[in-house]
Design a protein around this nucleic acid. Structure first.
Length: 280
DNA sequence: AAAGACACCTGGGAGC
DNA sequence: TGCTCCCAGGTGTCTT
């Protein structure tokens, strides 16, 4: 389940093997991912040199002079760096073969991922209207305070909203809310500025830490199994329903918010008293 | 405009 | 052992 740290780790892992190399061919075995892989990729990318690998939100951008291949890993996707001649397995849907013998292979059992194309002067619709990157200075408590005005959604769904801030998925949303001692169900216009400060700090810290740890498994992207490293990190609440809280030892509780399981500590993460005059 | 529901897909685990 | 059922996850889109 690739969250932002894994996508970032993937970008860093693949770039040294393919940057500056010309694409020899494209292989599409299963065009039907979340959306159909556009024919334009097969027709126009071979012969082009990969300029660099970038990330925006959870989208991986392979930059070429005539446009970019956009790859999203969905919930089960992964990219691996292989050498020419390795036989594809059942869910290996898409390959980019480079002139140096490197093959970048997309595996995605559930096919929730995507491979798309954007021309140089036609930015893809999916990349418009995205909020700030969580690990940049443009993302601050003020980002949240401004976006929260007049909204009543739960703070958990709010932090997972791509228009507010990108890259915070279900796992890290739960973890960050625990770290900031905020009840996930708190209506977002009832969250104090102090809590928003703590939440922003928690999101930045947890994501940065996960990327750092993911970085230790970079070698896995070369001929390895491509398994993510970030799950090795200790999760405080996610997936721990019924287990005891690491802070207060009381049992963790699970609720559903926006059709997503949400685990939290009812003792450490309390709902605030209702404030009438919210958001100044 | 905001919020909720639903869709996409497969593998894995639980329950029978 | 083998079957069925349910769930996980990200995020675009449709409905209320």
């Amino acid at each position: 389940m690739p969250e932002l740290p894994e996508v970032e780790t993937t970008c860093r892992g693949i770039e040294p093997h393919i940057k500056g190399i010309v694409v020899r061919s494209i292989t599409v075995r299963q065009p039907q991912l979340r959306w159909l892989i556009p024919d334009q990729i097969s027709s126009s990318v071979p012969g082009q040199r990969l300029l660099e690998v970038q990330r925006r939100a959870k989208y991986i951008l392979l930059k070429f002079s005539r446009g970019d291949i956009i790859i999203h890993l969905g919930m089960s996707g992964s990219l691996r760096v292989l050498s020419t001649g390795q036989l594809p397995a059942k869910h290996d849907h898409f390959d980019i073969s480079f002139c140096n013998g490197v093959v970048l292979r997309l595996t995605d059992p559930r096919r929730f991922g995507a491979v798309l194309w954007q021309g140089v002067d036609q930015p893809h619709k999916l990349l418009q209207n995205l909020g700030p990157e969580p690990l940049t200075e443009t993302f601050t408590a003020k980002t949240f305070i401004t976006a929260a005005k007049g909204r009543k959604v739960s703070v958990k769904q709010f932090v997972m909203d791509n228009k507010v801030v990108v890259g915070v998925g279900n796992i890290y949303a739960a973890e960050a809310l625990f770290a900031a001692a905020i009840h996930p169900q708190t209506p977002v216009n009832q969250v104090s500025a102090d809590k928003f400060n703590k939440l922003v700090a928690a999101i930045k810290f947890i994501l940065a830490q996960a990327i750092e740890r993911g970085g230790t498994t970079l070698k896995d992207f070369v001929g390895g199994d491509g398994k993510p490293g970030y799950f090795a990190q200790e999760l405080q609440v996610y997936g721990r329903k019924g287990e005891s809280c690491n802070a207060c030892l009381k049992p963790l509780k699970e609720i559903r918010l926006g059709q997503r399981s949400t685990v939290y500590c009812p003792n450490c993460q309390r709902l605030p008293r209702i404030r009438k005059n919210s958001g100044k």
